[in-house]
Design a protein around this nucleic acid. Structure first.
Lengths: 190, 190
DNA sequence: GGTTGCTATGCAACGAGTTGCATAGCAGGA
DNA sequence: TCCTGCTATGCAACTCGTTGCATAGCAACC
């Protein structure tokens, strides 16, 4: 499992509350790891008990107080240990692929609409990622302007992960086009 | 959830025992949906109770008896209903992406080795898929040789799903190359 | 004869993830 | 004033998936 590790990475990049973490899991981190606020609060509590994170009560004006979490030494050690630990290449879970094979035993027209919906969703995500890239990583080598600062690594790694998300969405769009073309080939004849 | 639906599709393609299903989930179906034999047996039992599948005791020589499952009318209806039901485009879970962003706070050399391992695993899978494609789908239009038989749809859909697996592995390999190049750029300077 | 290994099925316990619900302060608009 | 909506946190119940273990028949090999 890696939710606690994803939280550690996010808190290292910037300390924050459970609520803020939940926000981030809808944005950048959420591109490759989803989590609801429930999971986050639960895991944060456990991490606090284990001494992985420090908590600080932050009063706010105009809104409820928040608990700001930051990574403690034990948490850093735990993350480091996990990073050393090899993981298995993840196995995929594609509901849509099940549906596509299942369409052989049902109405393909329904599947066509479903695939079109998914393609649109992936198009939207791709546009969203590209906008984020333009906003956060402008200019070809602008990121290496500062000479050898360690912050560069953080940014470059964030960028390469984002490029992964873009490549994934592009691949999905292309493949769904292939699926639609395949459906069109034998769909009308029925 | 779609494990029961994946099982239904697999049983429609060909009836079989829980053990045989587990085998298939290590092969073709497993390309896009993983399941252990435990899950399969548990779900099969539930599906049997719900009348989704029929069971038949098959004595075998030289090996233990098996229970052969096939899809009942109720199961077919359940699958059909699920196929009609729109699903959300799946959210990704990439441990490796978490690790990559985490590498900014740890030794990047360790990550380099990890990424190389994963790239090799994806290369292996890609080779495996391509071999399966050559074996099961030879010739450009050989599949459409039989005139308009419904079996064509089944094969074509299996093929397009396999092409999706191939596209995914190829994309991952390209991206991991990108990751390695990025790591090489600032890795040595530390 | 004992060990290993494959087919074939299953229980029990645990951990992770989802869903529904609850609380509470405060802001802004109808 | 009431309703909606956002910040902020949390409980409880449930489902799903993983892991370890157990059983049992039979084949092949040393």
């Amino acid at each position: 499992m890696a939710l606690e590790h994803a939280i550690l990475v996010s808190l290292l990049e910037k300390p924050g509350s459970g609520y803020e973490l939940a926000r981030r899991f809808e944005r950048s981190i959420g591109y490759f790891w989803t989590a609801t606020h429930q999971q986050i609060y639960r895991v944060l509590k456990r991490m606090e008990n284990d001494g992985w994170v420090d908590v600080r009560d932050v009063p706010q004006q105009g809104r409820p107080d928040k608990k700001e979490y930051s990574v403690a030494d034990l948490g850093r050690a735990a993350l480091s240990s996990w990073l050393q630990d090899p993981i298995e290449p993840e196995s995929v879970r594609h509901d849509l692929a099940v549906k596509i094979r299942g369409a052989a035993f049902d109405d393909p027209a329904v599947l066509t609409r479903e695939v079109e919906r998914h393609r649109q969703a992936h198009r939207d995500r791709l546009a969203h990622y590209r906008a984020g890239e333009t906003r956060d990583f402008p200019g070809p080598e602008a990121s290496t302007a500062a000479p050898g600062a360690p912050l560069d690594a953080e940014r470059e790694l964030q960028h390469v992960v984002l490029r992964g998300g873009i490549a994934y969405e592009q691949m999905m769009i292309d493949w769904l086009d292939d699926v639609l073309a395949t459906l069109a080939r034998f769909g009308p004849s029925r």
